[in-house]
Simulated scan of single mutants.
Amino acid sequence: MGALMGGGVGLTIGFIFGSWSIIRGGAGPRGFLATLSQYMLSSAATFSFFLAIGSVIRSDSVLPPHFQAAQLQLMAAANVRSKSEGAQLMKARWDAEKRRLAAFSQ
């Protein structure tokens, strides 16, 4: 998918910059079509190469992205606590810290 997107973007950018270069400096000895196609193909190859690498790096997982998003949402919902549960957990941690400090000072 990255290669296809890069190819499309590269062809468009190659057309724009190639046309501008031909307008500014002339077509050269090979002619208008050959010069423009060289700009477009080299730009398309470069963009598609880098976007293909980027898409491979980004999709380097076992699960598809929509399953990963669902999994993260479910995991986040499991870690949500009510205020009373959070207060009980905090009190338990404070009591454990007090006992630890009391044992350390004796």
Rank of each mutant, 00 (worst) to 15 (best):
G10C: 02
W94P: 00
S61Q: 12
S59Q: 10
E97I: 08
W94G: 00
G14L: 00
F32V: 04
S84G: 02
S37Q: 09
S21P: 01
M5K: 14
M40A: 05
A96W: 01
R100H: 07
G28N: 02
S37Y: 03
F50G: 10
I16L: 13
G10L: 04
S61P: 01
Q68S: 10
F49S: 12
F104H: 12
Q73K: 13
Q106C: 08
S19G: 11
Q88R: 14
I13C: 06
I53F: 11
D60G: 06
Y39F: 13
F15I: 07
G10H: 00
A92I: 03
R100E: 04
A102T: 09
G31Q: 01
A70E: 11
G8C: 04
L4T: 15
A92Q: 12
M90W: 03
V80H: 07
G86D: 11
M75L: 14
G25N: 15
S21I: 03
W20V: 07
T46H: 05
R24H: 04
F17Q: 15
A70W: 09
R100F: 06
E97R: 10
I23D: 14
L41K: 04
V9D: 09
Q73H: 07
S43I: 01
G31I: 01
S84F: 12
M5D: 07
F15Q: 10
G28P: 02
S42L: 15
G25Y: 15
A44V: 01
M75Q: 15
L33A: 12
L72F: 09
S59P: 02
L36F: 03
A102K: 11
G18N: 01
I53R: 09
G18R: 01
A103W: 02
A34C: 00
A87F: 10
F104Q: 14
S59D: 15
L11R: 04
G14H: 01
I53K: 03
R58H: 05
I13Q: 13
A34D: 15
I13T: 15
S59M: 05
A45N: 05
G54Q: 07
M1K: 11
G2P: 02
S59H: 14
